[in-house]
């Protein structure tokens, strides 16, 4: 059996672990090296030095920095992310209660974005220079320019407030997904459409596409089997990069639509100065981000046989 794919995935897993450790360390220093004493903030500014000291002892803040870092890291490994100051419940519980909501919304949004972007991009390339192509290009320009909160509010205003067709926010049935998922899909669709269109334009010039036409395949078959699949490699790279945008727009969208996910949790915890919760949420988001990128690396290998045998391809940026 060919072991190369396994080595490949192993290497990615190792680098993924390194990235997560890096994120944790940066998070640690963000909290501990930021101006101001966290114990003072926790205790409130009216607190006496004795109270502040008590808190320092309670959270181990009186120990040397490297000891604190080690404790912090070992706690992370045990998935002990501390206790929320707001709710006094474990941060892990707080996050786990919200995470499924976010994952569902994000999945719906990304599926919508991909389902719309890939065909639009390929079709725009196949009809390059047409009105359809111009319309798609216009949509991509507008799509990247629209701020998420504005798109969300406008959609809400039109479909919820004016037309009473859809709920304005909160979680419930499938109809609750429509507005927030579209809000999140718009900013990530625009760049995916562009990259797919450009990649497809390049693929359309390849002799193997001409050969597919020369075989007598229908345009639909040529586009679906050959053009789309070959354009998918750069598109997948971009979809990976778009997860960063997705997380950012999740924070805003969940806040706009009162969606009880980790994006909203993050915003609420920042406003409440609930540092353990902020840290825990960012940690979980980082892990999700890295895991998705790992999944996409595996996706390349599935799509492109040249990567399976270690041949580099011209497509990857």
């Amino acid at each position: 059996m060919n072991l190369k794919p396994l080595f490949f995935i192993g290497k990615r897993l190792a680098s993924m672990a390194l990235i997560v450790v890096g994120v944790v360390i940066i998070l640690f220093f963000l909290l501990h090296l930021a101006p101001g004493n966290p114990a003072q903030i926790l205790a409130g500014f009216q607190a006496t030095p004795e109270v502040v000291h008590q808190i320092e002892v309670k959270y181990g803040l009186d120990k040397p920095l490297y000891v604190q870092l080690m404790t912090y890291l070992t706690n992370m490994i045990r998935l002990d992310l501390g206790t929320s100051i707001m709710s006094q419940r474990p941060v892990t519980d707080e996050i786990m209660a919200r995470l499924p909501n976010s994952l569902m919304l994000a999945t719906v949004a990304i599926v919508e974005a991909i389902a719309i972007s890939l065909p639009l991009g390929v079709l725009a390339a196949a009809k390059a220079g047409s009105r359809f192509d111009a319309a798609v290009t216009a949509f991509t320009s507008i799509g990247v320019a629209l701020p998420t909160f504005w798109t969300g509010l406008m959609l809400m205003l039109l479909f919820a407030v004016e037309l009473h067709l859809l709920p304005a926010g909160g979680i419930g049935g499938p109809q609750n997904f429509i507005l927030p998922s579209i809000t999140m899909a718009v900013p990530i669709s625009a760049p995916i459409i562009r990259v797919t269109r450009n990649a497809a334009l390049e693929v359309l010039e390849k002799p193997f596409v001409k050969l597919a036409i020369a075989k007598g395949l229908s345009m639909r078959e040529v586009l679906m089997k050959h053009v789309l699949k070959n354009a998918l490699i750069p598109a997948v790279t971009l979809i990976g990069l778009q997860f960063g945008v997705l997380i950012r727009s999740a924070v805003i969208t969940e806040t706009v639509f009162a969606w009880p996910g980790i994006g909203k949790l993050l915003v609420d915890s920042i406003f409440a100065r609930d540092y353990p919760l902020v840290q825990g949420t960012v940690f979980v988001i980082a892990i999700i981000y890295v895991a998705i990128n790992l999944a996409l690396d595996v996706a390349y290998v599935v799509i492109d046989p040249r990567l399976r045998s270690g041949v580099s391809t011209e497509w990857r940026f």
Binding site: F208, L217, K225, N230
Partner: peptide, 30 residues
């Protein structure tokens, strides 16, 4: 119809005439 049954073409660069993502057999069967 003309392409399906009557006329074939061979290009200059064989490395670009086959789709890199499909097995040779799949492309012949197509």
């Amino acid at each position: 119809e003309f392409r399906k049954k009557e006329v074939s073409v061979i290009f200059q660069n064989p490395s670009e005439s086959l789709d890199p993502l499909y097995k040779v057999g799949t492309q012949v069967i197509e």
